[in-house]
Amino acid sequence: MKHHITIGIGPAVFRVGSAWRDPIDRLASLYAAYPVLPGAIADFSVRLEPVSPLRRWLRPSIFITGDHGLAEAAPMSLAHGLLAAEMGMNLQMALGWRRHLLLHASSVEKDGRVLVMTGESGSGKSTLAAQLGERGWRLMGDEFALLDLESGWIFPFPRLVSLKNSAIGVLAADVPEQRMGPLLAGTAKGDIRHLVPRSTAIDRMEAGGQPALLLFPRFGGDADIRPVGQAEVFMRLTQASTNYVALGEAGFRALTRFVQNVPAHAIDFPSGEQAIAMVEQLWAERA
């Protein structure tokens, strides 16, 4: 394709091609601290194509596809090209990654131990991880946690953090402006701004850690902490994994081990500050 860039994120290398220059320029600027690998052999190719030949020029509209794609993927405006590229990379991971059990979860690390947080979109797991990443934890990822099939460790996938709506203001207060991407207003998920993780998250993006705590955060409601039983954790994590079925027996073994070894709690919280306090408390109390 006319414009392209090859980037390493965690264990994966992406080749992103675009019919337009702008999304690639924006990627290059936001991923400047990541390994940029021109000519490297990529694990996945992502393509940002015009939905039809005319739409390259006229009200440009992006169809996101690549090695793995969804025929019914919604077209996106060129103004949201950066988001399209991010979604294209996520799509490859969700549909194509087979080297780890992929959990739709955020994760942060401290002293070599990993806190994993999973939940629906809007649960606050991504914001919470980003906040912890600014407060002495190493951010490992806001979208996917990679569970190693052999060692049972969690490995990072520290792509840009995708902040949505009110989370943008929360993090913008903590983070220097040069680590924030442009505001993408009016996307299908509302306003989005990307956050570049701190350099330690990127420099150590190949370093995994032993999972020590699993949380199911839920933003809204009174503060509450409840233990979650193994059967429920197992069911919820199979639903939070895009490749559990595809990995077959290896996925089952890795997930059972994780569920049996990692204590799990559901936490409800009315504010980010309270959530952080609850996380620190649970972390201190763990085993």
Binding site: A40, D43, G96, A246, G248
Partner: peptide, 21 residues
């Protein structure tokens, strides 16, 4: 084949085994 391709091959073989099974 270079190392990155070996990893891709391993993925593809595992996927094919699953297909067959």
């Amino acid at each position: 084949v270079p190392e990155p391709v070996r990893r891709i091959w391993a993925d593809a073989r595992r996927e094919a085994e699953r297909e067959t099974r």
